[in-house]
Simulated assay, not measured.
Amino acid sequence: MEGLIVKSTTWNGETCKIGMPDGGVGIAVNAMERDKYCFWSIGGYNLKEERHWIWKGGELHVGDKIEIEFAEFDEATPPVLKKPHSCPNPPKKDDSPENWQFKLKTYQKLKKVLEDEGLI
């Protein structure tokens, strides 16, 4: 399978092979300058199981390093957590005339911006 080989200074030199045969994986880094907080995580969604797979991550500090290599390997490091997909706030369908007018006005505004920029 294709995936990511990840090594982080926050893991004391440990390397993880991140991948799944029936889904994709990704790395997210969230830095909050105001709160002086930085966190990273690795995860993916397994379509066959309909579950989110989560690998290691953690808090980052100035000077920490993460090495990422795209590679092919036979077996991945098991995720630390698998959880079912859920949507706590499912979207509400609103077909009211007011909502359609709002959507049309938003579309027209965005279309004008793209026209003014010469993108369409």
Rank of each mutant, 00 (worst) to 15 (best):
M1F: 10
I5G: 00
I5R: 15
V6G: 01
V6I: 11
T10E: 13
T10G: 08
G13E: 14
E14N: 11
E14R: 15
T15Q: 11
C16E: 15
I18S: 02
G19L: 10
M20K: 02
M20Y: 03
P21M: 12
D22E: 10
D22T: 09
G23I: 02
G23Y: 10
V25Y: 03
V25K: 01
G26R: 09
G26S: 05
A28D: 13
N30S: 08
N30E: 09
A31Q: 06
A31E: 07
R34H: 05
R34L: 09
D35Y: 07
K36L: 13
F39Y: 08
W40S: 03
W40Q: 02
W40L: 07
S41F: 11
S41A: 13
S41R: 09
I42E: 04
G43V: 09
Y45Q: 05
L47F: 14
L47S: 15
K48W: 00
E49P: 01
E50H: 11
R51N: 09
R51Q: 06
W53I: 05
I54K: 09
K56C: 05
K56V: 04
K56L: 14
G58R: 00
G58F: 02
G58C: 04
E59P: 00
L60F: 03
H61N: 10
V62G: 05
G63F: 01
E67M: 10
I68W: 02
I68H: 02
E69P: 00
F70R: 07
A71V: 08
E72T: 07
F73Q: 04
F73D: 04
E75P: 00
A76L: 05
T77A: 05
T77W: 02
T77Q: 04
P78A: 10
P79R: 01
P79C: 02
P79N: 03
V80T: 08
V80S: 12
L81N: 12
K82Y: 04
K83Y: 06
K83Q: 15
H85V: 14
P88A: 10
P88N: 07
P88K: 06
P88T: 05
P90E: 07
P91I: 13
K92T: 08
K92I: 14
K93D: 13
K93V: 15
K93A: 15
D94H: 04
D95Y: 12
D95K: 07
D95H: 09
P97R: 02
P97W: 02
E98C: 01
W100T: 14
W100A: 14
Q101A: 14
F102D: 11
F102P: 00
F102A: 14
F102W: 14
L104E: 13
L104A: 09
L104T: 12
T106C: 05
T106V: 06
T106R: 09
Q108N: 07
Q108F: 06
K109E: 14
K109F: 06
K109R: 15
L110R: 10
K111P: 04
V113H: 07
L114H: 07
E115F: 11
D116L: 03
G118L: 02
L119Y: 10
L119D: 09
I120G: 05
